[in-house]
Lab assay of single mutants.
Amino acid sequence: VFVDDHLLEKVLELNAKGEKRLIKTWSRRSTIVPEMVGHTIAVYNGKQHVPVYITENMVGHKLGEFAP
């Protein structure tokens, strides 16, 4: 499973602090992992960042699938 390192670091850091804030990313190719559930990730679609709230059903899919 591929997840960009910088994105995973941000998610794990927020989980350690117990925070839930918006994470901006250009990494549409990253796979959604269970650690991301409950976070809102702003995924770049080529024009703007689209906020995507991550749920359990999204695990295993790519971030780009949810930012048309």
Score class of each variant (00 low, 15 high):
Met36Val: 01
Leu7Trp: 01
Ala42Trp: 03
Pro51Trp: 04
Val11Ile: 14
Met36Ala: 03
Lys24Gln: 07
Thr40Leu: 09
Glu56Phe: 13
Ile41Thr: 01
Arg28Gly: 06
Gly64Ile: 07
Ile23Trp: 01
Gly18Thr: 03
Val52Arg: 06
Glu65Asn: 10
Arg21Ser: 13
Pro51Asn: 10
Phe66Glu: 07
Lys20His: 11
Gln48Pro: 03
Arg21Leu: 14
Asp4Gln: 04
Asp4Met: 02
Val59Lys: 13
His39Arg: 01
Thr31Glu: 10
Ala16Glu: 09
Met58Glu: 12
Ile54Phe: 02
Asn45Leu: 06
His6Asp: 12
Tyr53Asn: 14
Thr31Ala: 13
Ser27Val: 07
Ile23His: 01
Glu56Pro: 12
His6Leu: 14
His39Leu: 03
Met58His: 15
Thr31Phe: 10
Phe2Asp: 06
Glu35Leu: 13
Gly18Ser: 06
Ala16Cys: 09
Ile54His: 00
Asp5Met: 15
Lys17Leu: 12
Val1Phe: 10
Met58Thr: 08
Met58Ile: 14
Leu22Asn: 04
Phe2Val: 05
Asn57Leu: 14
Ile32His: 00
Glu9Trp: 10
Glu56Gln: 12
Asp5Ile: 15
Lys62Leu: 12
Tyr53Val: 12
Arg29Asn: 12
Lys24Met: 13
Thr40Gln: 07
Lys24Val: 14
Val11Cys: 05
Lys62Gly: 08
Val43Tyr: 02
Met36His: 03
Ile32Glu: 00
Ser30Ala: 03
Val37Gln: 10
Lys17Cys: 09
Gly18Val: 02
Glu9Leu: 12
Phe2Ile: 05
Ser27Lys: 05
Val11Asn: 00
Thr25Glu: 00
Val33Glu: 02
Val1Pro: 15
Ala42Thr: 02
Val50Ala: 09
Leu8Ile: 09
His39Pro: 00
Asp5Ala: 15
Arg28Trp: 06
Arg21Ile: 12
Leu7Val: 02
Glu13Thr: 09
Met36Asn: 00
Pro34Ala: 14
Asp5Val: 15
Arg21Tyr: 12
Ala16Trp: 05
Glu9Thr: 13
Val50Gly: 04
Glu56Thr: 12
Pro68Tyr: 07
Val59Trp: 07
His49Phe: 13
Thr31Trp: 08
Gly46Lys: 09
Val11Tyr: 01
Ile54Ser: 00
Ile23Ala: 01
Ile41Arg: 00
His61Lys: 10
Lys10Gly: 04
Gln48His: 14
Glu13Cys: 10
Pro34Gln: 11
Gly46Val: 05
Ser30Asp: 01
Val11Thr: 02
Asp5Glu: 15
His39Asp: 00
Leu7Asp: 01
Met58Leu: 14
Arg28Thr: 07
Glu35Arg: 04
His49Thr: 02
Val3Lys: 03
Leu8Arg: 05
Val59His: 05
Val3Trp: 05
Val33Met: 08
Glu19Asn: 04
Val33Gln: 05
Thr25Phe: 01
Val33Asn: 04
Glu9Val: 08
Glu9Asn: 14
Arg29Trp: 12
Leu14Thr: 02
Phe66Tyr: 13
Asn45Val: 05
Phe2Cys: 12
Gly38Cys: 07
Gln48Arg: 12
Asn45Phe: 07
Ser30Thr: 06
Ala67Leu: 06
Gly46Asp: 07
Gln48Glu: 13
Lys24Ala: 08
Arg21Asp: 14
Val52Gly: 01
Asn57Ser: 14
His49Tyr: 15
His61Val: 09
Glu19Cys: 10
Lys10Phe: 07
Ser30Phe: 03
Tyr53Leu: 13
Ala16Pro: 01
Leu12Gly: 04
Glu35Gly: 07
Met36Arg: 00
Met58Pro: 00
Ile54Pro: 03
Glu13Phe: 08
Trp26Asn: 15
Thr25Cys: 03
Ala16Gly: 07
Val3His: 04
Lys17Met: 08
Ile32Phe: 02
Asp4His: 05
Val59Glu: 09
Asp4Ile: 02
Pro51His: 05
Gln48Tyr: 13
Thr25Trp: 02
Val59Leu: 12
Tyr44Leu: 04
Asn15Thr: 04
Ile41Val: 06
Lys10Thr: 15
Ile23Glu: 01
Phe2Trp: 15
Asp5Arg: 15
Ala42Gly: 14
Val59Ser: 08
Tyr53Glu: 10
Pro68Asn: 07
Ser27Leu: 05
Tyr44Met: 06
Ser27Thr: 03
Leu8Ala: 02
Glu65Arg: 13
Glu56Gly: 14
Leu12Arg: 15
Lys47Trp: 08
Gly64Trp: 10
Phe2Leu: 05
Val11Lys: 00
Gln48Cys: 12
Gly38Met: 08
Lys20Asp: 04
Lys17Gln: 09
Ala16Thr: 09
Val1Gln: 14
Val43Gln: 01
Val52Phe: 07
Met58Trp: 05
Gly64His: 07
Val52His: 04
Thr25Asn: 00
Trp26Thr: 12
Arg29Glu: 08
Lys24Phe: 15
Tyr53Gln: 12
Lys62His: 14
Pro51Val: 11
Val3Pro: 03
His39Val: 02
